[in-house]
Amino acid sequence: MRRRPWAAGLVVFFGLVLSGGGYAAATNVVQSDIGSAEQIDEGRKLFLANCASCHGTNGEGAIGGPSLIGVGAASVDFQVGTGRMPGQASGPQLYKKPVQFTDEQIAAMAAYVASLAPGPAIPDEEYLRGDGDPTHGGELFRINCAMCHNAVGAGGALTEGKFAPSLAGVSAKHTYEAMVTGPQNMPVFNDTNLTPEDKKDIITYLKYVEDNDSVGGFELGSIGPVAEGLFTWIFGLGFIIAITVWLGAKSN
């Protein structure tokens, strides 16, 4: 149902999907050291071999993909580091896939893209350790993130087949990068909206939720009352009906 033959529409859609980072960066300049000359050169080679067919030979964008000028290293690290890029299946949204490059290669490409124009950088380790304030992080998460990703990051639906992915198993670095770059249809949470400290608190909250099993027992996917209702009908009532059948059967 999801994979409708959108043909040309899809291509345009993809252009739209990935172009947002550019707008974001244009007004939100967070630049870091842009890497050594060799690294950038190495990144450029990788870019030409793997990305240029969609994003243009100089990252200026083409029919298949948006411009990468100004999306920053964080965007490359997120998209390639989670395997979403290079994109392959056509659909409403890019999926997480096995990562296709080594960490060095990703860093090289990130350095190359960062060298094109200033953009969000890969976050510092100090924001990723998860030693912030989980209460504040939880509150921010509920206000800014939970409506799409669910109160504990189990994910949720968006329109027309798009979805907010589950945050289980997503590294702190990628979580941070997603907030600053706003991949695909996710909005951007720049540093004036959620300060780096705020982002650290959010990461702390997510870490707490992921590291601590539910005190109540198995969680049924943390997706709320629907799972609980189905469980009641299928297992709860199912088990009790099995007992009633035994109860009503004649013994031999």
């Binding site: 509920r142 027992g217 009352p225 629907v226």
Partner: peptide, 23 residues
């Protein structure tokens, strides 16, 4: 053995936020 209605996950009521999968 099975968690039901983990209220601690949802947080206190506040009219501004909402969680995906509000049912």
């Amino acid at each position: 053995t099975f968690t039901i209605n983990p209220i601690w996950n949802y947080g206190p009521y506040d009219p501004s936020p909402v969680s995906a999968g509000t049912q």
